[in-house]
Every structure is written in structure tokens, then in C-alpha cells.
Write a protein that binds this DNA or RNA. Structure first.
Length: 241
DNA sequence: AACCAGGACGTGA
DNA sequence: TCACGTCATGGT
């Protein structure tokens, strides 16, 4: 049992002990091999991570870009569907910002249809692609990212954390669901407060931010998918005292 | 057959 | 700020 009084940190340790490193973005290896789907092991309805424990990715430009595409595609959709859309785009070799913009709108929509909201996501993807190119290799500021149509709070933080490796904690619906169920925050807590709660209780460490959010998602998939949320969650017992 | 998925936007209090 | 309707396919 951890001796720390820091509940946020204790939960992180518990989750990591339970599930281990998750391995999120990026999905594709743009240097050589394509992803072999048979290598992806099942993990609670989704697919197993791609490079668990490696927090140095993405390394190259198209990999950074791929993560950005993924953050838009997965909005309010399971990662499994977003992943399919991403693989569809990869088959056309358009996971490259310049080539992506050459793709006609109808083909684009067709490729990403499986991820839902394809009309607006097609627009969002183009917008964020133009923004990415305009950066010219620079790391975007959060306030500039948020002005891009289709990039809200969570997506902006996801891009900064998972594409640019900047220490911005990502809060999502699962985070709110779990931590309000545990009685740590209110159900109607807003994004900024919840994000601040994590960032003020954790070392400013990209690897921890990266892993913690992924662990929250994995935990939520197991115990917070259907109502009543958190019914069989063992966390309340584990973090007692 | 409902309900949910690694949300964001536009609008009107 | 905050609440609400809208966007849409797919899995369970």
C-alpha cells in the first residue's frame, strides 16, 4: 500500500500496477513496416497498445501528423473505429500533410466514414492539416491550437501531449466519470478545474501524463461503460487509507 | 433496441 | 460561464 496522501498519485500507481504501460499513439511506423494487425492483441474491446512504455514517440514529422489526425478521428468514437479510418487513409498514402490536402473531399469522407461524424471531421481534418503545415515545424501554443475549428480542450491537450510531448494533462469524459464516482470531484466539474487537479498533484512529467490518461481510459472501459457507472470498480477499496 | 464511444460547435439564456 | 441540440457510424 502506498504511503502517499496524494490520492491522484496513489490512483495512478494502482492503475499502473494493475494494467501496466498502455502504449498509445502513434499507430503507424512510417519508416519501414506497416502495422501487422495480427500483432495487435485484444484488450477490453479495443486493441492492445503499439509501443507500451516508449514515451519518445513520435519521432518524425509524419508520425506527429498521424497523431493529430487520430485525435480528431477519435472524437466521440471508439478508438477502434478511428484506427480503421486511419488505416484507410494510410492505404492511400495520405498520412502526410501535403498529400492529405490533395485528397478530394468525397474520397476523404469515404475513408473516414467508419469513425462517424464524417462530414464535419473531414473539414476539421483539413483545417488542422493546414494549421500543421503553417507551423513549419514549430510546436504550437495551446491558445493557437484551440482556435482551429474542430480542436477543443481535450483535442488540444491530446495533440500537445501525444504529438508534441508537452506536459498537458488530458481530461476526457471517462476521467470525469471515474473521479466524480470516487467522490474526488463533483459531476459537473469543468474541464479546466479537473485538468488543474491532476497537474497540481503530479510531477510535471510527460511520461506520467501520457500513461495516466491511457490508464484512466483502460480502467473506464472495464468499469465505467454502462450505467450504473463504476459499479464493480475495485478502486474505492484499493485506495482506502 | 437502446445506449455508448479516447468531443466540438453554435446558440441562447 | 452553462445547458442544450446537433453531428453519424458501429459495436454490444
Amino acid at each position: 500500500m502506498s504511503k502517499s496522501k496524494n490520492i491522484i498519485l496513489r490512483i495512478y500507481r494502482e492503475l499502473f500496477n494493475q494494467y501496466g504501460p498502455q502504449g498509445w499513439w502513434p499507430l503507424l511506423n512510417h519508416e519501414k513496416i506497416m502495422v501487422d494487425k495480427s500483432d495487435l492483441m485484444e484488450k477490453s474491446g479495443s486493441l492492445r497498445g503499439y509501443h507500451p512504455g516508449n514515451y519518445d514517440l513520435p519521432l518524425e514529422r509524419n508520425q506527429v501528423y498521424e497523431v493529430i489526425l487520430g485525435t480528431i478521428l477519435t472524437q466521440n468514437t471508439s478508438w477502434l473505429q478511428a484506427e480503421k479510418a486511419l488505416l484507410n487513409l494510410d492505404e492511400l498514402n495520405v498520412i502526410n500533410p501535403e498529400k492529405f490536402l490533395e485528397l478530394d473531399l468525397e474520397t476523404l469522407k469515404k475513408q473516414i466514414k467508419c469513425a462517424g461524424f464524417f462530414n464535419q471531421k473531414a473539414i476539421y481534418l483539413r483545417e488542422v492539416t493546414k494549421f500543421f503545415i503553417s507551423l513549419n515545424g514549430q510546436i504550437p501554443r495551446r491558445k493557437d491550437l484551440i482556435t482551429v475549428k474542430g480542436v477543443g480542450n481535450e483535442t488540444a491537450d491530446s495533440i500537445l501531449l501525444y504529438a508534441y510531448k508537452k506536459p498537458e494533462f488530458v481530461v476526457d469524459a471517462y476521467t470525469k466519470r471515474i473521479f466524480s464516482h470516487l467522490g474526488i470531484v463533483k459531476e459537473n466539474v469543468n474541464y479546466r478545474s479537473l485538468k488543474e487537479l491532476f497537474e497540481s498533484n503530479l510531477p510535471k512529467d510527460v511520461a506520467i501524463y501520457n500513461e495516466y490518461h491511457a490508464l484512466i481510459v483502460e480502467h473506464a472501459k472495464r468499469y465505467y461503460q454502462k450505467n450504473p457507472y463504476g459499479k464493480d470498480d475495485p478502486l474505492p477499496q484499493m485506495i482506502k487509507y
